[in-house]
Design a protein around this nucleic acid. Structure first.
Lengths: 148, 148
DNA sequence: CCGAAAATCATACCAAAGGGTGACTGTGCA
DNA sequence: TGCACAGTCACCCTTTGGTATGATTTTCGG
């Protein structure tokens, strides 16, 4: 961007010089040397800049730096994916605890509800995920990016 | 590198012009306009090039391209890790099928053994992995790099 | 404020998982 | 040859998981 600004500025300068040359054409006879010199200076400065920019301008070097980006650490739960499957926040919570290897009873104690409630959530979860077992539910949930 | 060669070449040209100017100093009186013009041209061309090079010369841009290096695809089952835990090949086989979300019955049908056999393997597996449930076994196995 | 969705809980039932024990058969190694 | 070990299988029992149904309360948007 900087380059463009510079070039446009210089073009404007050249234009002004040209305009002044035309406007004060009658001065050529009396002050031809100054005008001639200025014109040459402007033209060659522009030429020099053009040369400097085009001939020495290096192509952008793209250094591909392979960075191992662990998918787990960059994981962010996005509600869109969750709601696309019609899974509620609470159900997702239970899903995560199930994925952590907790039993229904442990989950129940962890979130302060009864085991029956956990079972109900789990059942709905399996239905929505098309799974018939814990493991399948967790696998498909991972495949859908629902959990890390 | 190209830029340096160009600069040196132009400097040499300017030097030649200056030398010629000094050498043929006596011509100033008669051909002052041409010499003056040439000098201005050379100086401003050099100035332009310098401007073009220094002001618009882009620094080398390092583009960090984050390439997701999937650790899962590069996973290779190494027997050392397996034997360190005293887990047999057959047990690992069952572990993998369990991780795929298969039930004991499905695993049994898959490897052509009875469900009881699968249960026995599973029990030994849980004991060796210090797990009390399928999920825990799979989680610890993943943590140990036993399975992807 | 009202109704739908979500969350909660219970009860009953059946399937699956897991623990424990014992037994039989290859395979390989001392 | 005999022993250790992996693999196989069976039986029994308990725990956990999953389904079905019904009900109550909470929450939230129109």
């Amino acid at each position: 961007m900087k380059r463009h600004i510079l070039l446009y500025g210089l073009l404007a300068g050249v234009l002004i010089v040209v305009l002044r040359l035309i406007e004060y054409r009658y001065l050529i006879a009396t002050r031809s040397v100054e005008i001639y010199g200025g014109l040459i200076a402007a033209v060659f400065a522009a030429l020099g800049i053009w040369l400097g920019v085009t001939l020495t301008g290096r192509p952008e070097r793209v250094v591909v730096k392979e960075v191992s980006v662990p998918a787990a650490s960059t994981f962010v739960a996005d509600p869109a994916r969750r709601e696309a499957l019609g899974i509620t926040k609470r159900e997702l919570e239970i899903l995560e605890l199930m994925a952590a290897g907790m039993s229904n009873k442990e989950i129940a104690d962890h979130i302060f509800v009864s085991e029956n409630t956990v079972k109900t959530h789990a059942s709905r979860l399996f239905e929505k995920l098309g799974a018939r077992r814990r493991m399948q539910a967790i696998n498909t949930a991972k495949g859908s990016g629902l959990i890390p």
